[in-house]
């Protein structure tokens, strides 16, 4: 049926993504036990971002979706980043 153009993700791929996500979780927890100051937050957010990317692309099938949808999702994160930056600029120069 033409309606079902969806991509079927193999079980092995999903299992590998989970292993990677678990590894990144353990990495985050072990990194925060060292006191790296401001770097901790940056590294933690970077790892969280990577995990988010993995969930969006493989679990949520975004890797196999149309370009339109991928651009839309990207725009939401760009919008959020802009809101954060603008608000922080506002607070910094009050």
């Amino acid at each position: 049926m033409a309606n079902n153009s969806s991509h079927t993700t193999e079980y092995v791929v999903l299992a590998r993504v989970l292993l990677l996500l678990m590894f990144l979780t353990i990495l985050t927890i072990s990194i925060t036990s060292y006191h790296l100051g401001a770097f901790t937050v940056a590294i933690t957010l970077l790892i969280a971002g990577t995990k988010g990317y993995l969930v969006l692309s493989y679990f949520m099938h975004l890797k196999y979706e149309s370009l339109l949808l991928r651009i839309l999702v990207g725009m939401v994160f760009v919008l959020f980043a802009l809101i954060i930056v603008i608000t922080f600029i506002d607070y910094a120069y009050r």
Binding site: I29, T32, H35, T40, V41, T44, L45, A48
Partner: peptide, 8 residues
């Protein structure tokens, strides 16, 4: 999780 539990 990292923001609420792990920030130091």
């Amino acid at each position: 999780f990292p923001l609420i539990y792990l920030i130091t």
